[in-house]
């Protein structure tokens, strides 16, 4: 029985860079900082490729590394800055440009103000579209914990953004996508 040679690690990592960046930007709210997080993640991943189990989900493995890199980064910043509020304020320095974009800027601010663990859970489920099981693995907690964090995050955002349902168009597909957790 002949096996196909495994793809070069370099190519395998390359495939996942766009989603790592999207995850890092969503977590940190800043593109420059996000790219530094991705850089550190790639170096760590490269060094630890031996501990990755082939045939398992590499994207989830990389997200776990990035998540840990991000948390160390936050701890480091907290020690340096001694002021969590300014870290968060800095992380949402996205000025609303046009009226049409106000919504998104408000949303980013609200997202950035969520507790870390809630924001992380919401991004993993609602944006990166991991299953609850995968998200639990990445966040290092129970599946039920992910679910409750996502629910709390959604409720907090809804309250914070003062959403008026009447102004929001119905999008059944999106609603369905959000209403049911993705399965892999």
């Amino acid at each position: 029985m002949s096996e196909a040679p495994p793809p070069a690690p370099r190519d395998e990592l390359l495939v996942h860079i766009p989603s790592l960046r999207a995850f890092a930007v969503s977590l940190s709210g800043q593109i420059d900082r996000a790219d530094d997080l991705v850089q550190e993640t790639l170096v760590k991943a490269w060094r630890n490729l031996g501990s990755f189990t082939e045939g398992t989900n590499m994207r989830a493995w990389l997200f776990t590394i990035l998540r840990n890199v991000y948390i160390s980064d936050i701890r480091r910043r907290r020690r340096e800055v001694q002021d969590t509020d300014s870290v968060f304020a800095e992380s949402v320095a996205v000025a609303p440009q046009q009226n049409g974009h106000m919504d998104l800027a408000d949303f980013r601010k609200a997202l950035a103000d969520l507790p870390e663990e809630q924001r992380e859970a919401l991004i993993l489920i609602g944006a990166a579209e991991f299953s609850y099981e995968e998200a639990a693995e990445i966040a290092g907690c129970a599946v039920g914990t992910v679910k409750s964090r996502v629910n709390r995050a959604r409720n907090a955002l809804a309250r914070r953004l003062n959403l008026d349902v009447g102004e929001i168009g119905l999008e059944p597909q999106l609603r369905a996508a959000l209403g049911t957790p993705p399965h892999s």
């Binding site: 919504d103 609602g126 959604r154 929001i168 999106l174 959000l178 209403g179």
Partner: peptide
């Protein structure tokens, strides 16, 4: 669910 859809769309 519409609020959820809105949040999901932004996210």
């Amino acid at each position: 669910t519409d609020v959820q859809a809105h949040i999901g769309r932004q996210l």
